[in-house]
Lab assay of single mutants.
Amino acid sequence: AKPPKTVTVKVEVTNADGETQTRTVTLTNLPKDLKPGDTVTLPETGQTARIVEITP
């Protein structure tokens, strides 16, 4: 079996106070056609994050 493909992405997350924070997260099994501006759900927090940058 192939190991899951991990991708490092820079995302913007809005916290409970309405502040936008930029975080770098490593995600696995992202859709192939994901692009900056799309939103993903962070598995560890369940927060919705907007992708700023994808590092191949």
Rank of each mutant, 00 (worst) to 15 (best):
V25N: 01
E44K: 07
V9R: 00
N29H: 10
P56N: 13
R23D: 04
V7S: 06
D38Q: 05
D38N: 03
T24R: 03
R50A: 03
T39L: 13
I54H: 02
T45P: 02
G18F: 02
P3D: 14
D38I: 03
T45S: 09
G18Y: 02
A1F: 05
T24E: 13
L30T: 11
T14L: 12
T28M: 02
D17K: 11
E53H: 06
V11W: 03
K10D: 02
L30S: 11
T39V: 12
T28R: 06
L34S: 08
E44Q: 09
L27K: 02
T45C: 05
P31E: 15
D38A: 05
A49K: 00
V40I: 15
L27Q: 04
T24N: 07
L42E: 02
I54P: 01
T24I: 11
N29V: 07
L27T: 04
T6C: 10
K35M: 10
V40R: 00
T20F: 07
G37T: 01
G18I: 01
I54R: 02
E12F: 03
A49I: 06
K2I: 15
L30H: 11
T14W: 05
I51D: 00
T6P: 12
T14Q: 10
E19F: 11
T39F: 14
N15E: 07
V11Y: 10
T48F: 04
T28G: 15
P43H: 07
K32D: 15
P56Y: 05
V9H: 00
Q47G: 06
E44W: 03
D17E: 12
V7K: 05
A16G: 10
K10F: 06
T20G: 03
L27H: 05
P36Q: 06
T55S: 12
I51Y: 01
T41G: 03
P31L: 14
L34E: 00
R23A: 09
N15G: 11
L30C: 15
K35E: 06
T24A: 02
T28N: 07
E44L: 08
L34R: 02
P43Y: 03
Q21E: 15
D17V: 09
T24D: 10
K5V: 14
D33F: 08
E12M: 11
L27V: 11
V52K: 05
L42I: 10
V7R: 06
P4F: 01
Q21L: 12
P4I: 13
G46T: 04
P56V: 13
E44G: 12
K2C: 13
T39Y: 14
E19K: 14
A16Q: 12
T24V: 13
V13T: 08
P3I: 08
Q21S: 14
T55Y: 14
G37L: 01
V9P: 00
L42T: 01
A49M: 02
V40E: 00
T20Y: 08
P31Q: 13
V13G: 01
V11D: 00
K2G: 15
Q47H: 06
P36R: 05
P4R: 08
V25R: 01
G46L: 05
A49N: 00
K5G: 13
P36Y: 06
A1C: 11
T28S: 11
G46V: 02
P31S: 14
L30Q: 12
E12H: 08
L30N: 10
L30W: 15
V7Y: 06
D33H: 09
P31R: 05
K32T: 15
T41E: 08
V40F: 13
